[in-house]
Design a protein around this nucleic acid. Structure first.
Lengths: 242, 242
DNA sequence: GCCGATTTGTCCGTATGTATC
DNA sequence: CGATACATACGGACAAATCGG
């Protein structure tokens, strides 16, 4: 099942940039040249390039060309992309991840919950608290609220494994958009109870709403990370005026 | 000077969503209808809609329509994506901002600075430390490194006002892309010395690299925020596969 | 400073594919 | 099945910025 053309071009250019075929401050070949290289229309090239720009790999300069602004990462410089998921960061560091469910009940969303999560008042939701471990260290405290109507038959076993796998592979749901909010907060008594805080009295917190392919918000998650195991990346392009 | 067509359409749709003409879970008019509404081509509509999707305002559903996923927010917004200066964000929140320069020297980038900031070794850079006040409270500690070659004639007076104003309005420079990294860190002695921490012993930290319209990274900033005055928003759209 | 070549930016029209209902 | 809606792709036209002669 081949991907669409613009994705293939995007991927190829991205690999060439990461592989330093195109280096920091280089220009990409011009659009007309790439049209021949990839035998496609100009729009298709432009689409691939604009995706690279969103990723912070390149920057288009009117009348001049498309310049590479990607720099290979040292450990402290900037990588690309959003949040590193629990699973991904575990894999990258060769750590063994595990999960413990400490709370699993059902509640009805009231006004207070609506303001905090965005769930419409009266919705039946699952309320879940989980602790995430890396190599035996309790580093992340996760609070999940899931719309019961959208996620029927949720069990503790699923939660111990991966909600995400269950939604995609078992229920066939596609997750499309996710809105996130980053803050830094003082550790609560709950955090201290469950996490291995190693002297820290504060946490990096990501709160997020997730929308499925029906455009319905079905999940609210708050993920509370020990700060030394957390990092969040982003690329912004300036817009003309509000 | 009128903006481009897709921007006007984007803006109008955005306002209608914010004004609740199109509400959460509504569908936008179909593309064909909007083609008539705005008398334009399909591509132009699609471009405006995809920008709204990037902002987390709508979500396109193949074969069904474009659904609104915007919900009006509570009071605490700092930035909803995009690059925004301290002054701009203060103005938007109706606060009175001020700035004090506590350090302003020149240095040469060495290997250590390169790894931390991305400045090429040997570059001459200005090194600046500033304290930012909102309504008289010292809330943000900013460290700026600016490429001297790109920002000649920088003075303390400029720093007290706004670097971005100077760059954009005086030097006519356009800021295009910014890569950011968010972490939570323990407060240092410097932070404690200059900031009004109100009992907090940690900070929300944004480190960012900024690129100008020549595609050159000319600025590295680390912005250290008191956590209760900090919030960072982001919207992610799921990509198919790696 | 002007002109022309090159390059990216905006916009249009059309055709075809695919998902939903 | 057909109608509707979004997704991908193509090709062409003109504008705007840049650069070299």
């Amino acid at each position: 099942m081949p991907k669409s053309k613009f994705e293939l071009i995007y991927k190829e250019l991205k690999q060439k940039i990461e592989g330093l075929d195109y280096k920091y401050r280089d220009f990409l070949p011009s659009e007309n040249i790439m049209i021949d290289m990839f035998s496609c229309s100009r729009n298709t090239i432009r689409r691939a390039v604009s995706m690279l720009a969103e990723d912070g790999y390149v920057q288009s300069l009117h009348g001049k060309g498309v310049r590479v602004i990607y720099q290979p990462v040292g450990q402290n410089s900037f990588t690309i992309g959003g949040i590193e998921s629990f699973k991904e960061s575990a894999a990258r560091n060769n750590k063994t991840p595990s999960t413990k469910v400490v709370q699993f009940t059902e509640i009805i969303a009231d006004q207070r919950i609506y303001e905090k999560t965005g769930f419409i008042v009266g919705s039946e939701v699952y309320y879940i608290q989980r602790v995430r471990y890396l190599d035996g260290k309790a580093l992340i405290f996760d609070i999940n609220l899931l719309l019961k109507a959208v996620v029927p038959g949720l069990t503790k076993e699923v939660l111990e494994a991966s909600i995400y796998d269950y939604l995609e592979n078992v229920l066939g749901m596609q997750i499309v958009t996710s809105k996130r909010k980053m803050t830094a907060e003082r550790a609560t008594q709950i955090d201290e109870k469950y996490l291995d805080l190693n002297g820290y009295n504060f946490l990096a917190v990501i709160s997020s709403q997730t929308f499925n392919s029906d455009g319905i918000m079905f999940e609210y998650t708050q993920s509370r990370h020990r700060p030394d195991y957390f990092c969040f990346y982003d690329t912004a392009t300036r817009k003309k005026s509000p």
